[in-house]
Design a protein around this nucleic acid. Structure first.
Lengths: 138, 138
DNA sequence: CACCAGTGATTACAAGTGTAATCTATAGCT
DNA sequence: AGCTATAGATTACACTTGTAATCACTGGTG
C-alpha cells in the first residue's frame, strides 16, 4: 500500500469525520474546521482554505492509492475511506517510534514530560491505560 | 527551518552517534549498522547498503538545510549535527501527535496497548515517568 | 613536478507532492 | 431539444526526495 501524504491525510481525516460524503461535503468540512479561525468550532486547525480543485485532486490520488473508495450516486460520487483511522494512525505512530526511538514508546513520553507537555489529564489517562494493561497481563 | 526527509534523517542519525565525523566515517557507520544483518551490532536496521554518492548528496542537502555543519580539516570536511537529536525527535513526535491525535499522547499509547505492543518493560518505564511527573507536579 | 585518486560540488532524473487550471461529459433548466 | 453549470478526469508545474553519476580541484605519490 502506497504512502499517504500529509495533504491526503487531511482529506482522509475529513472523510473519517463523516462518510460517505460527496466531494463538496468533504471540501466544506475541510474549510469549516477552522475557516477564519472562528474559535468554538473544533481544533485549532490554522484556518487554511482548501481550493476545491486541490481537494478533488487529492481525492483522486487517494482513490488510486486505494485509501478511498466511491460509489456512483446518480450523477455524483459518494466517497468513503477504505482504511480504518485507528489502524492507519497506529501504523504511522509505530513507524515514527521505530525510526526515532528504537521502537520504544517510553522515550517519546519522556520527551513530552521533560518539555512540560503533559498535564493532569494526560497523566490520568496514562495511568488508566496502565492499570488496564496490568489487569489483562499478569 | 526546512523539513528533513527520511533519508536525511538516517544520515543525521549516524552523525549523532559519533561526531564530528568525515563523510567516510558517516558512510561506514550507516553501512555498519546492519550490514548483511549481522545480529549483535545494533538495531535491526534492515541491511540496506548506502552508496557513498548518495550519502554525500544527503550531507550536502543537510548542510543547505542548516541541519549539519562542517569545518574544513586539511583537505577534508568534518561534519557535525547542528540540531539536537532530542529536540528534533520531540518536535517530530509532537507534530505527529498533533496531526493524528489532537495533541493528546494517551490515544497513541492506547493504540499500542490494544495491539499488544507494550511489554512489562515499557509499562515499568511509563510508570516510572509518571511517578517522576507526580513528584514534580503536585 | 606531473599525474592520479579521492573529495566535495554540480548535475541528473524519475517519482511523489502541493496546488491548481483546463478538458469533457452530462444532468437539469428553459 | 439545446445550452450551460458542474463534477470528475486529465494535464500542469515547480519543488522535494531517493538515488546516483559526472565534474573539478587538490594533496600526495612516483
Amino acid at each position: 500500500m502506497t504512502e499517504i501524504s500529509n495533504a491526503e491525510f487531511e482529506v482522509l481525516e475529513a472523510l473519517w469525520q463523516n462518510y460517505p460524503a460527496s466531494a463538496n461535503e468533504i471540501i466544506a468540512k475541510l474549510n469549516e474546521n477552522g475557516d477564519t479561525n472562528t474559535y468554538g468550532t473544533d481544533e485549532v486547525n490554522q484556518g487554511k482554505q482548501w481550493h476545491d480543485k486541490t481537494v478533488k485532486t487529492l481525492l483522486n490520488r487517494l482513490v488510486k492509492k486505494k485509501a478511498v473508495g466511491f460509489e456512483k450516486q446518480q450523477r455524483h460520487y459518494l466517497y468513503s475511506p477504505l482504511l480504518e483511522r485507528e489502524a492507519y494512525t497506529l501504523k504511522e505512530s509505530k513507524s515514527l517510534i521505530e525510526r526515532m526511538f528504537s521502537g520504544k514508546i517510553a522515550p517519546l513520553v519522556a520527551g513530552f514530560a521533560k518539555q512540560n507537555d503533559l498535564n493532569k489529564d494526560d497523566i490520568s489517562a496514562l495511568k488508566s491505560l496502565i492499570s488496564d494493561w496490568e489487569k489483562n497481563n499478569d
